[in-house]
Amino acid sequence: MPMSNESLINCEHVSCTYGNAAVLDDVYMQVNRGEFVGVVGPSGSGKTTLLKAILGTHPVAHGSITMQPKLTLGYVPQVETVDWYFPVTVEEVIVMTRSKSTWWPRITPSERKAVRDVLDRLGIGEVANRHIRELSGGQQQRVFLARAMFCNPDILIMDEPTSGVDVRTRHEVLHLLADLHADGLTILLTTHDLNGLAAHLPRLVCLNKRVIADGNPREVLTPSVLESTYGAPMEVLEHGGMPLVIDHGRVPMRGEGK
């Protein structure tokens, strides 16, 4: 997907707080149409707060976030926050995003067809009438992706899309996002997963309250940047043409090496 210089989201001098504690400090970041951007950083670095500030659910203490007029955002929260016992089917979850545009309580035939189309596009057309608890990890992630896609967003914003999922599901999500990006969708996500997800993305922003580095993984995933971001020494190797981050914080286990 060719990138353009058309800015969709522009964060300038953005600072956010929880009470008196600063979570984001003077953050600059711009997301252009067609980009696929990953935000990485340790726990408490402000990744989720940055997304919430962009989504308008967390107040910006200083600075500004400007968006292109009439920008449609598709948001995928962490699936770990979902109540899987809630009595809803996949179809009902997906049409929820039309809550503002219609008062009619029942799902209309046209909505049903649109749900089927978006599920087919994500390769899970058969799960429309299932209860959300009856889905596999990969299907769960795809359903919430489908809900975000249902409103034809200009940009997809995802919070930790591979958090708590197994390796196979992570691969599925990564390939799916790559396909969606190739189809022209702009994607902004946060992740902890440096090797499994971040290293595969075209652009990374390293965040620890402020932006430490911004660029492609080869430029950004360096020992000095990672130490500044995570506060711990890390080694970066080359593997299969991609950077591979080695964490030096490993503690030897009892009995190891005997």
Binding site: T57, Y75, P77, E92, V93, M96, S99, C151
Partner: peptide, 14 residues
């Protein structure tokens, strides 16, 4: 239904 199931995303969705 939306605000009961997922208040954060409901807020984002208007």
């Amino acid at each position: 239904l939306f605000s009961t199931f997922d208040p954060d995303v409901a807020q984002v969705s208007g």
